[in-house]
């Protein structure tokens, strides 16, 4: 069955919540990289999992190679966060971290894991914090995260996620733009969740909208 897209108001509210959460991520990344980080969330959308591969390909570019980190979460919401980096982004990160020449695969993986961890932790953790602050939601809004792992290196975006092999039905897609030292790069946060997770988020957003 298909799920209604987020309304404009719901998307605006989610975008603002995510932007606030990302303020924390920006500060953490700035510490990690020792550089000022400009960070924004320009686009958010919900897609059904079957539609995800072509949507991802369109977002990151059909012929571009990507690397990705996955991390599962459970508690108030359950699902899996997948953080996708384009190749230029990986290289830019390595440069900024001050790695000379070849970083080597293990070094690059470690870097991706660090940055992905900061992004997913800040995004989901920040959202939970605001849910606790603003709404009278039943039960504590807590999440626990598994260890992140690198799921793919330099694959085509369309091949990253096989909907047949994933247990979740829906994806919440957040595009995160960074600018560091005049270099722009983009990461995509993809939150895979069951339908009730998306509905739960929609309920929270409606509560927010009603409160203001």
């Amino acid at each position: 069955m298909s799920l209604a897209a987020l309304s404009n108001d719901q998307r605006d509210a989610l975008q603002e919540l995510t932007n606030i959460a990302m303020g924390q991520a920006g500060a953490s990344l700035a510490t990690l990289l020792d550089e000022f980080v400009d960070l924004s969330v320009p686009r958010i959308r919900v897609v059904e999992l079957v539609d995800l591969p072509p949507v991802l390909a369109e977002l990151v570019g059909k012929t571009n190679l990507v690397s990705a980190v996955r991390q599962s979460f459970q508690g108030y919401l359950r699902g899996e966060a997948i953080i996708i980096f384009g190749e230029p982004g990986c290289q830019a990160l390595a440069d900024l971290m001050g790695f000379e020449g070849e970083l080597g695969e293990s070094g690059e993986n470690e870097l991706l894991l660090d940055v992905a961890n900061v992004l997913s932790g800040a995004c989901l953790g920040g959202m939970m914090e605001q849910i606790r602050n603003f709404t009278e939601t039943k039960g504590p809004a807590e999440l626990s995260f598994s260890m992140p792992s690198v799921m793919a290196r330099q694959v085509m975006a369309e091949q990253l996620i096989d909907p047949q092999k994933v247990q979740w039905s829906h994806a919440l897609l957040l595009e995160v733009n960074f600018t560091i030292k005049n270099r722009d790069f983009i990461a995509h946060l993809t939150m895979l969740m069951p339908e009730e997770g998306i509905e739960k988020i929609r309920g929270i957003l409606d509560e927010f909208l009603a409160a203001f």
């Binding site: 932007n19 606030i20 303020g23 000022f36 400009d38 602050n133």
Partner: peptide, 23 residues
């Protein structure tokens, strides 16, 4: 929402009187 100290310093140096953190 940007809580980096550099952002605060920058806007204050550009003439803002104060910086308030979101939310």
């Amino acid at each position: 929402a940007d809580i980096q100290p550099v952002a605060q310093e920058r806007v204050l140096s550009m003439g803002a009187i104060a910086f308030v953190k979101k939310p």
